[in-house]
Amino acid sequence: MSRLQAGRRHPVRFSLNGKPCTGEAEPRLLLTDFLRHQIGMTGTHVGCEHGVCGACTVSIDGSPARACLTLAAQVDGCEVRTVESLAPSAGRLGILQAAFKRNHALQCGFCTAGILMSLDCLLRDHPRPDEATIRDFLSGHLCRCTGYAPIIRAALEAAAEMAGDVSRETTHA
């Protein structure tokens, strides 16, 4: 049994975007604050801190999860992926990101990272979701700018492209 005492920092070892990562966290430190302010990965945003808005959604062991409802200590030994992992290389966009850009599926971009991570998880598990599936899956995200329609379109396009129905060159950022 390991008891991590309050008020002290304890090591957290996990995989972040495919690479081993070690940080230190007090037991009460939220995964959002840990990723953003300890590790320096600020792409994951904080919108409500009570698990409703979805802005902080990251992938934990392949499933989308609210980083604000997760303690840093809970991801010890886990595989965490964030929006910073989505681009194939600097200056290029992945299929999903490119579809968002083509479809004007973002405006302020604050909620976008969470939505991308949910869709990334969805498309890994269900290569050809229909619109109803996508809408249901994204109902756990709040976007205040777009009215959602372009997001749904982008997701459908990305799914089609990933399934090989359409082929596009990797899009330059």
Binding site: M1, S2, R3, L4, Q5, A6, G7, E26, P27, R28, L30, D33, E49, H50, L71, A73, D76
Partner: peptide, 21 residues
């Protein structure tokens, strides 16, 4: 909007968890 401080016990057996309880 941050939690108050607490100890965090990562139970490795069920008996450990029950003992803390």
């Amino acid at each position: 909007m941050k939690p108050a401080a607490f100890d965090y016990v990562r139970a490795e057996t069920l008996d450990e968890a029950l003992e803390v309880l």
